[in-house]
Design a protein around this nucleic acid. Structure first.
Lengths: 204, 204, 204, 204
DNA sequence: TATGAATGAGATTTCATTCAT
DNA sequence: GATGAATGAAATCTCATTCAT
């Protein structure tokens, strides 16, 4: 019919983001239909096209939103005064903390890259590589200062990111381990993986 | 038309496995149609139903085949005489070696669990947990002998598996690093993550 | 949002007529969406419904506007003192001149009759037959005076109108032939088709 | 379900051609849905895609089929021994006879060119221009031999084709005039339009 | 007078699957 | 063992239209 009394574009836009994120993460982009999203939002499928020009663009908008927010958050978190060891710990803790609270964004931004058409893929890859570059720079700085025993910063960065992001594959909030404890455990493992012991935590 | 001269069920069966594996890995189960698989194999879609009763069962057959082969391979690899440190290194090297050569099987067996219907999911999970149990047992053995500094064998096992399997996300055969070198690097990182140094390799 | 400063109903009405005419002529009524028209006009689709109650009525308004203007123009052009030959030449020249400058109106008024619902169709047919009657009357007058060799005025009228209107299918303003030259050529052909030579133009 | 007992591809293919031709001619390409065609044929819409890869290709197949058959038919009809006057009469009679029995093919092949995408349009235009070239060659031959008073063969060809094809806009089989009589009338008009009288027929 | 949000219907097309041959 | 023809359901997306603002 027409606009329902009280309906509001911004509210609908947020609901579409939230519901499509949850559905894509749970079932995968290809397995989620626009009808499923519309049902979750409480509108007809056609209404989704007022907000995203097609299904692919909806996915792109979710990914771009996540990666841009992630990069902004790190820029606020980082401290130029950190030593490489401090920077590595800060990064590990930040990564876990940021990712653990947004498992759906994380999952689709890493797993649904294959669903992107070439142009969209390239645009998103730029953002993703930009974040990977943060960790690589930290490792490289530690390596040239002979603080890290890290033969190949690229491989180490990939391994560390895989390990850190892997938390999301098993973490459930309210589970046995607190978020802070998980940060502690992983910070130590990350440091050790480049040959460092974090001070005062050899007991972990 | 009837059977083409020279067409052969076993050949077709293998081609279906190979092509569906590659397609599911590249695009995801939901994004691959039976027609795409049939085209890749060189038959009509209806022919696929001579080998797998439906699309879901085709996926299950691929996963079960992979996981059963993986467990068989480990049983041939393991050595009851190993110390926990040796066992951990053997496991790390085995995991990388086995997985690096079967990236498609690995990928779909981890990523397409969500595409399984409940009954099929449970059956596959049993196999998967059985393999995770191998690593957990090694870690637990090292922990009780005070060889590993490993507070929580379950968390550590998940972290290590994530890191090891993560190789597949960036490894390309013929790349800069040999498979043996990658095994070395990861064996050291895995050992360090539980507080051990592998002998004679502090230079890695 | 309310009315934009400076927006003006009459301007919009004219723009809707101009743009819908061009789009219907180029792509056909059924292939043009209200959204396409709105985009061309520079308004939202809903705004179109302030001027025409629905898409069908928009088409009817275009056709009626054209046919009524055509009949008015002929009434101003015709000369009761003409002989049948003069009247036929006048009609041929008028038809070409009037139609050649309004190709879009002409095209949709002839081609989109099939898109009209029965009631609207009948109303438009009355206007169209009224114009065809003009030519038929001229031919009939020439026939009864034994000036035209024209066995069947109806068939001849249809043939002549098809030929004359056919100019629009290839004429492009600024092309090789001037409008006046085209009028000359067709006036001669029309006259000859009923067995007459126009005076002083046997060279054409 | 599956193939119905007794269903047969060639039968269905012909039915699709016949029904889509009739529907496109009556309502226009854009106004006809695949569902309408499927209903007329007596199959589900999806079955149409076994015969034509999409709606556009269905239209192209209809047009190409018509134009190729038309050119083949003329090649069998033409007689190299004809004088220009004889050739012109033969062409006029052939054109009317061929087109009058295939009004739907004719209509869509001339009117739905605008519905073609650029590549398809070019391919069809080649065929259409090839047929126009037949008439132009006849006119040109008569002009250089000073038999036809025809200043511009291209314009005359367009005018004559418009007139001849225009028959389809009013002819109904079983109507007042026989097909032979219509051929006679038009043959005379066409000849006169280039300044010739057909022998023994000045009475028409 | 016009917008912005939405609807309900329907468009084209693809899908997994079936089964007579 | 495989094809070729078809189904019934569902996918993505567009459409004309409505109406609170």
């Amino acid at each position: 019919m027409a606009r329902l009394a009280g309906s509001d574009g911004e509210t609908t836009a947020k609901a579409i983001r939230a519901q499509s994120l949850a559905l894509f993460a749970r079932h995968g982009y290809a397995a989620v239909s626009m009808r499923m999203i519309a049902d979750a939002v409480g509108v007809q499928p056609g209404a989704l096209y007022q907000y995203h020009s097609n299904k692919q663009q909806l996915l792109v908008d979710l990914m771009r939103g996540h990666l841009e927010a992630l990069l902004r958050a790190w820029r606020e978190e980082e401290d130029a005064a950190d030593s490489p060891v401090q920077a590595l710990e800060r990064f590990a803790r930040f990564h876990i903390r940021y990712h653990i609270t947004r498992p759906d964004d994380v999952f689709i931004s890493y797993m649904e890259l294959r669903a992107l058409e070439p142009d969209e893929f390239r645009a998103i890859e730029v953002l993703r590589k930009s974040y990977e570059g943060v960790l690589k720079a930290i490792l490289e700085a530690g390596r040239v200062q002979n603080i890290f025993s890290c033969e190949d910063p690229h491989v180490s960065a990939m391994a560390i990111l895989a390990m850190l992001t892997g938390v999301n594959s098993w973490y459930r909030s309210g589970g046995r381990l607190s978020q802070a404890k998980i940060e502690d455990i992983y910070a130590v493992m990350v440091a050790r993986s480049v040959g460092c012991e974090l001070e005062g935590r050899s007991d972990v």
